[in-house]
Design a protein around this nucleic acid. Structure first.
Ligand SMILES: [Mn+2]
Ligand SMILES: [Mn+2]
Ligand SMILES: [Zn+2]
Ligand SMILES: [Zn+2]
Lengths: 136, 136
DNA sequence: TCTGTATTTAGACTAAATCTAGAATGAGTA
DNA sequence: TACTCATTCTAGATTTAGTCTAAATACAGA
């Protein structure tokens, strides 16, 4: 049983606003990894008031800082956002650009591989390749 | 015995120009992972002619496409460049921002972990954490 | 040398992200 | 309820990374 957006914001100590709520809900209901502009286009109509670009970026940064969502860097120049906060990694299908979540359990544990000299807080693995047809 | 920049460009089939040569040499002699602007600042004085921003970006894209250098994405919004073409990964010291190369041999092999459904062409691992003092 | 193609240049342009200053919101309190 | 004050949101300006354009230059091959 997973948390609702509302419960998640409460749990993470983020003050609720309708803008934060719809953006969080939008990210929670998609498996895509949308950009700020895609999020703006996707949620603007859910609100009774105009939604500005600055608010989208402010909100995304607030949510990232609070640990509600994550930034995903797979290509130069465009930050993508992800409401999947389980430890996971990404596979980029180079033909379609589709980004697929790879649960951490699918990979061997590399958390400790670097030894004592590096205190690893987090790590991300990004795979690039072809997604075979039957998986699409 | 490693290749010179000149030999590398020849081997990779990139037509030689003085701009390509100094940019390649600049990247080969540093362990940093500089941005385009840092590269522009670092090489401009090596050339007898003015160097334009467009040439830096054109050259970097040409070198990436030819496999002479790699793009490194560790933070939103800024592409970094790397002349280390051995298979390797990166550790970002979150305090200093320093980016350190991690040879692939330091990690367990995750090339095959995804199974048949994903044909992995390449992958990158980025670690974020603290570099312990005695390693600095 | 001549000629065509690739490269470089300066500066305009585009797009991602941030900043600013004022307006709106809204929780806490009288 | 009405007031206060901090926070958030807004529109638009600004900054910055990166691309594009058109003209000048370099340079390889005939
Ligand atoms: Mn950010
Ligand atoms: Mn590129
Ligand atoms: Zn994801
Ligand atoms: Zn590197």
């Amino acid at each position: 049983m997973s948390l609702t957006a509302k419960e998640l914001l409460t749990k993470k100590g983020v003050k609720m606003t309708s803008q934060r709520l719809v953006i969080t809900e939008y990210l929670m209901q998609t498996l895509e990894h949308p950009t700020a502009d895609e999020i703006l286009a996707g949620v603007a109509e859910m609100l009774p008031v105009p939604l500005s670009r600055a608010t989208v970026y402010n909100t995304l940064n607030t949510l990232v800082d609070a640990g509600v969502i994550r930034e995903v860097l797979t290509e130069p120049g465009r930050t993508r956002y992800d409401a999947n906060t389980f430890e996971h990694h990404h596979f980029v299908d180079v033909k379609s650009g589709k980004i697929i979540d790879i649960p951490q359990e699918m990979l061997p544990d590399i958390e400790k591989a670097l030894g004592d000299k590096f205190k690893v807080h987090s790590y991300t693995v990004t795979f690039y390749g072809d997604l075979e047809d039957d998986k699409k």
